[in-house]
Amino acid sequence: MAPKTLNLPLSPQAAAAVRAGEAYNLNGVLYTARDAAHKRLVELLDKNQELPFDVRGQVIYYVGPCPAPPGRVIGSAGPTTSGRMDVYTPRLLAAGIWGLVGKGDRSPEVVAALKKHGAVYFAAVGGAGALIARHITAAQVVAFPELGPEAIYRLEVRDLPVVAAIDSLGNNYYVRGREIYGWKNHQGKRG
């Protein structure tokens, strides 16, 4: 089935309609953040200080891109493992982040926070950095330039291919997919 198009930032209605296991093309603005940037954002929240961009309604993409070669917007830019951000994510969802893009399963705390805030988590294709870079039409550092690949970039994307992995009802395709194809579940044995 052809992927559905989703415009970013996400409207509450659009986020609520996203279903785990379906393919989407993302269009619009994403903000990048990975380990070091998350640590700093949460430190700012702890001190009740202003964040470097208005996070309300925005979508975060977990990526540390390669440097842009001459004539290009960005270098390779595939997703990094989302699980390392799990300790920070509920705080950012509470602050108004509405969507997340990365790779790999999330903690039960993150799934609960997604449900609570009506937010969604998308999986981009890990290790497809050159393909994904083609869908990024603009990139600009907006915070923490000293972090190099870990700086926060504002990206504009066109038809970025993703699969909804966890939706706002808490449906988790990392669990569901294994239920369908894993023999341990339907043959009742393992090892």
Binding site: V63, G78, G129
Partner: peptide
């Protein structure tokens, strides 16, 4: 399909296959 297409793009354009080099 995405992974295979990515490998072609990376080789053709001399771009890193993955940003984690």
């Amino acid at each position: 399909d995405c992974i295979l297409e990515n490998a072609d793009i990376a080789a053709d354009e001399h771009q890193p296959i993955c940003q984690d080099t």
